[in-house]
Simulated scan of single mutants.
Amino acid sequence: MSEKSIRILVVEDDAFTRIMIKRTLKGQNVVLTECSNGEEALALMDGERFDAAIVDWMMPKMDGIEFIRRVRARRGEPPYIIMLTAISSDEGKRTAMESGADAYMTKPYDNDQFLEVLNNGVHVSRLGRQTEQIVSRSTAGGLRKRYTAVGIASSTGGPQTLLQFFTDLPRIDSAAFFIVQHGPAWMLASFAERLGSVASMDVRLGAEGMPITPGTIYLAPGDRHMIVDPVSFELRLIDDPPENYCKPAADPLFRSIAAAFGRASVSIVLSGMGRDGTIGSGYIRAAGGIVVAQDPETAILPSMPKSVAELMIATRIIPLPMLGKEMAKILLPVAAGIRSAAEPVPL
């Protein structure tokens, strides 16, 4: 078996559904283990580690909700958990997610969406283990900063969206903001001045070696990816190839924020075409940070926030008219000393 094979535990009492899952995963690099209830699944997990668990709700002996709760109460690295059920209500989804499920899908499912959720979920979980190692090394060296890093991705429709967001957002001295807005260098230089005219914080166009100061907004310049150096906590402009057909792109920035700030990381994905910011948000989620997607229905072009929402990476989905106010509720308690930036932010 390859080291990269995905070890999947299928917890499902319906034989037909188990067959359908096996058919969906045929040809994928997976190793399947099957059982028919939560008790059997817990026993299997005592002797083996799984990358993912696909769990039904209604089962004999121990249902899926109780199984998930017990898995989350255990020590060690839990699998990525997908609740796959015929219960399609909003209340059911809320119950499953509150119990500890990572994703919620209903039967019958779409094969492509199922594979996308599974593969991305396992990928994010594995990244989380790598990110935790990076963050722990930074912490051991006393390098962690006591403020929050907020990375923002936007593309088509982004300038108008950013202007509204920062008009609504009060000054927050406990966070530094990093923006990737897709566009050419001349446009971004001009937009930095325009954003500075409405924002309650200083706006700076990112430059190589620029030190990071909380209470400041940094906008990525054109033709370079902007990242955070996890050792010096300065900005770096790197001339790597485009990502998601973009340069600057949000994914490199988000990855660097996750490595440098760990649980004190936040990503916000706004209006735009494509998927930039989705994988990078996965790094932030895996590091224990918060991922916010603009409600796609309020986006000028919904592709980017919709990608984050559909892959169930987002911890919050917020309409644009409420975004500034809601982010202030999340970030301002740090400034007031109610909690430290390194503590989990309440959702």
Rank of each mutant, 00 (worst) to 15 (best):
S303I: 00
S303P: 03
D51M: 02
L301T: 12
A293T: 07
K325T: 09
R204A: 05
L127H: 00
T17P: 01
T24G: 02
G206F: 07
E243S: 13
E193S: 10
K22P: 02
V292T: 04
G92D: 06
M105I: 15
M226A: 11
T298P: 05
S138K: 02
A73R: 11
R236Q: 11
I134E: 02
L163F: 08
S256G: 09
R285L: 08
D251K: 08
T315N: 12
A86E: 11
D112Q: 12
K145G: 04
I290C: 03
A299T: 04
A41F: 07
Q130A: 13
L301E: 09
M273D: 03
Q28V: 02
M226T: 10
A103T: 15
V345W: 13
E132L: 13
L253V: 09
S155D: 12
R23I: 03
P242A: 15
D51L: 01
V266G: 07
S197I: 02
I81F: 11
E77N: 06
S267H: 03
R69T: 09
V30W: 11
R285W: 00
V228H: 03
S256N: 08
D173R: 15
S154Q: 14
D46E: 15
E98C: 09
Y218F: 12
I227C: 09
A258T: 06
F191M: 04
G157K: 05
E48G: 00
L9Q: 00
L169A: 14
A73G: 04
P241M: 15
A86Q: 12
V135L: 00
A309M: 13
M97T: 11
D14W: 00
P305W: 08
S36H: 09
I290T: 13
I284C: 01
R275I: 10
M210C: 01
P242D: 14
